[in-house]
Simulated assay, not measured.
Amino acid sequence: MHIQTFQWAIDLNADGHISLWEIWETLRWVFRIPGSLAVEFLGQFPAIAQTLHIQASADVGYGSLDGLLSKVISALFWVPLLMGVLSLGNKSSSRPNHLDENTNTQPLLLPMPKDYPVLRKHH
C-alpha cells in the first residue's frame, strides 16, 4: 500500500543546501503526519470520503492531506501529547503526615490535628 503522507524530502529545491525555510516546512510536515495519516486512511473508504469531502487516495488525488480536517486531527494528537510530556516534569508537593489520613475513617474535609482531644469508646 502506498502511503502518500510519508513522501517527503528535506531539500525541497534540490540545490544541495538546507535552508531555514526547508527546516520550517519539515517541521510543519512532522506536525501534520498524524492528521494526514488519519485522513489518508479515511480516504480509502469511498462512503466516508464522499461524506467528509476527503480527497486522499490515488484515484482522486491527495488534496485533503493539507486540509483543515488533517490539521485539527494533528492538533488533537499533539496537544495532549505535549501536555502529558510537560506534566511529567511537574513534581507533586508532599503533604504533611496526619494521624487520621485514612479517607475511609475521616469524615472531615480537613485532617484532624494530632493533639485534638478525641472521645474513645471503651469495650
Rank of each mutant, 00 (worst) to 15 (best):
M1A: 13
Q4P: 05
F6C: 00
F6A: 05
W8T: 03
A9D: 14
A9M: 05
I10K: 09
D11Y: 10
L12I: 14
N13L: 00
A14P: 09
D15C: 04
D15N: 14
S19V: 13
L20P: 01
W21M: 09
W21G: 02
W21I: 00
I23G: 01
I23R: 06
I23S: 01
W24T: 09
T26C: 13
R28M: 13
W29C: 06
W29N: 00
V30R: 04
F31A: 11
I33S: 02
G35E: 15
S36C: 11
A38N: 08
V39H: 04
E40N: 09
G43H: 09
G43M: 12
F45Q: 00
F45M: 02
A47N: 11
A47P: 04
A49I: 05
T51G: 05
T51L: 14
L52H: 04
H53A: 12
I54T: 03
A58R: 15
A58S: 15
D59Q: 12
D59G: 04
V60P: 04
V60H: 01
G61N: 06
Y62V: 04
Y62C: 02
G63N: 07
S64K: 08
L65W: 07
L65M: 06
D66P: 05
D66G: 15
S70H: 08
K71Q: 12
K71N: 09
V72M: 12
L76P: 02
F77D: 12
W78S: 08
W78H: 11
V79P: 02
V79L: 10
L81R: 05
V85R: 03
S87R: 08
S87K: 07
S87H: 13
G89S: 08
N90Y: 04
K91N: 06
K91S: 10
S92G: 03
S93I: 02
S94R: 03
P96S: 00
H98V: 03
D100T: 06
T105G: 14
P107Q: 05
P107H: 08
L108K: 12
L109Q: 11
P111V: 13
M112K: 07
M112N: 00
K114S: 11
Y116R: 14
V118A: 02
L119D: 10
K121T: 13
K121F: 12
